[in-house]
């Protein structure tokens, strides 16, 4: 039960229920669609880049609580950062989920709530999908799948 409580922390349930920046962004400068062919999760991430800064980040799609919360927190966390900072953050999330067990680095902030996913290997792809999709958007690719990267 405690692993379960770690997975579905209050903050994750909250982002699942009231996802932030869940909207279309007609004025976006880049976007990508990610999907997890195994479970059918789909997410679209849209970004507006001003110079090298992500001045706006939004998402839409169908997914489980883990992928929705991850996407919702991601949009808040990456807004106002540079593209390379956003990529670095994505790397830190990946390390937190897949790397050797360690206390989450302070930079990830609220995203530390995702660390409970570690104990549920089948769900790591759900948490990473929005991040893969953001990276694809920043790289100018139209699509990403949960199979890439990890």
């Amino acid at each position: 039960m405690s692993e379960l409580a770690d997975l579905y922390q209050e903050i994750i349930l909250d982002h699942n229920k009231r996802p932030r920046n869940y909207r279309e962004m007609p004025e976006c400068t880049c976007s990508a669609e990610g999907n997890n062919p195994l479970c059918g999760d789909e997410v679209k991430v849209s970004v507006r880049l001003d110079n090298d800064t992500l001045s706006d980040v939004a998402f839409q799609g169908q997914g489980c609580a883990i992928s929705r919360a991850s996407a919702s927190m991601m949009t808040g966390k990456t807004k106002g950062r540079t593209a390379s900072e956003a990529r670095a953050l994505s790397g830190q999330v990946r390390d937190m989920l897949l790397g050797p067990e360690a206390a989450p680095p302070p930079e990830v902030g609220d995203l530390a709530a995702l660390s409970g996913v570690r104990k549920f290997p089948a769900r790591i792809k759900c948490a990473m999908l929005p991040w893969h999709t953001l990276e694809a958007a920043l790289a100018g690719q139209a699509t990403a799948t949960s199979e890439s990267g990890d």
Partner: peptide, 14 residues
Amino acid sequence: DGIHPHDIGTILDT
């Protein structure tokens, strides 16, 4: 309502 099947599956599994 409001609960994705994967979340149901994961919690049932625990």
